Amino acid sequence: MSEVETTNDQNPAPKRKDKKPSRSQMRSASRGLALQAVYQWQMNQSSVSEIETQFTLDQDMSACDKLYFRELLQGVTSRAKKLDGLFEELLDRPLSELDPIELAVLRLGAFELSERLDVPYRVAINEGVELAKGFGATESHKYVNGILDKLAQRLRREEIAARRQANK
């Protein structure tokens, strides 16, 4: 090796300071953990407080918004039947035949669309699709997208109309 050539060992890249995750990144992380917690609740009917405690002890929650995680978990589990009623008639099969991951994603999406008006409808749909891609079956994200899109058209009619008007 000539004197001009150097290896990465000789000149390591300067260390970057770890950036704090953005608010949207923290919320995405919260949704991912909330999905897993809701799934656990659906599968074994453990108490929500027990699941929440387990997650705060066992999961690295440093990159998530812990309060948002808690709100999602508490909100979805306490309103599950109401949330199911919002999208059940949009399904092409009985609720009981949904994949448990799809059900958990749809419940989270329905919660954000109906209860969290500060979350834009497009964000709620996109986050649901990304969760389905990451945790669901191969094509489940397409199914989730279709259901959440139809639900948004019902629950966020004014927001969708205003967005379309602004884009003209």
Rank of each mutant, 00 (worst) to 15 (best):
A80K: 12
N145P: 00
A152P: 01
V123F: 08
R107Q: 13
F135N: 04
K81R: 13
G85H: 03
D118W: 09
F111Y: 15
D84T: 14
I125A: 01
L108Y: 06
D92L: 10
L95Q: 06
R154Y: 05
H141R: 01
A137T: 04
A110D: 00
T77V: 11
L103K: 15
P120N: 09
P94R: 15
V119T: 14
I147L: 09
L151P: 03
I101W: 05
V76N: 07
G146I: 03
G75P: 07
L148K: 04
A132C: 00
E130S: 07
T138Y: 04
V144N: 09
L117V: 11
I147D: 00
G75S: 12
V123R: 08
P94M: 13
E97I: 02
K142F: 08
S78C: 12
S96F: 10
L113C: 05
V144F: 02
L91G: 03
G75E: 11
V129I: 13
G109C: 09
R107F: 02
I147H: 00
L155T: 09
G85F: 11
A80E: 11
A124Y: 08
A80Y: 05
G136W: 01
R156M: 06
A104D: 02
A80H: 07
E139V: 14
G146K: 14
E102W: 03
E97V: 08
Y143W: 05
G109W: 11
R79N: 15
F87I: 15
E112N: 10
G128Y: 05
D149Y: 11
